[in-house]
């Protein structure tokens, strides 16, 4: 059951990204291009996702001591706004703006075997390792 939930959750996530067309970088870039041919669809994706997730979270999950399958509910209790959060969001924003691809759609596009997607995902993993290395050395 535990494995089934992880798999089905991933399947639904990829399915939803495709239905909403957020797997298409052009769609995302046109959302971000508010001074061009603006395509506001991404807002509707966020709203749809938030209505469902926030409702379940606020009315069901917060009332529970642990998850339905017995594990602890691991959300970050850390509410500190620090340099890493802000710098990380800035770097991510630049990368997202250049490509229109964020991690979810990047992985969801892997079955298309587009060489540029394979390259993007590989370099994304390299970028994550560079960040880990910087954090270990307290460079940031």
């Amino acid at each position: 059951m535990k494995s089934f939930i992880a798999l089905i959750s991933g399947l639904l996530f990829g399915f939803g990204l495709t239905v909403s067309q957020m797997v298409d970088p052009n769609k995302v870039l046109n959302f971000l291009d508010i001074f061009g041919q603006w395509d506001a669809s991404l807002i509707f994706v966020m709203v749809g996702a938030l209505i469902v997730f926030a409702t379940v979270y606020q009315f069901v999950i917060t009332k529970r001591e642990q998850a339905l399958l017995g594990e602890t509910i691991s959300t970050l209790k850390n509410s500190k706004i620090d340099k890493r959060l802000i710098l990380g969001a800035v770097f991510f924003g630049v990368g997202w703006g250049i490509t229109g691809i964020c991690p979810g759609p990047a992985i969801a596009n892997l079955s298309g075997v587009e060489p540029k997607i394979l390259a993007f995902v590989s370099l994304m993993v390299v970028g994550m390792q560079i960040s880990e290395w910087c954090k270990r050395r307290f460079l940031i």
Partner: peptide, 29 residues
């Protein structure tokens, strides 16, 4: 140029939200 698609956006978004909700509700992740 991409076409504005509020309905498929809302629907796809709701599916994504549902995916995130079951992962946290059942597995706490």
């Amino acid at each position: 140029m991409t076409e504005f698609s509020p309905l498929s956006g809302l629907l796809g978004g709701a599916i994504i939200g549902f995916s995130a909700a079951i992962l946290m509700l059942f597995r706490g992740r």
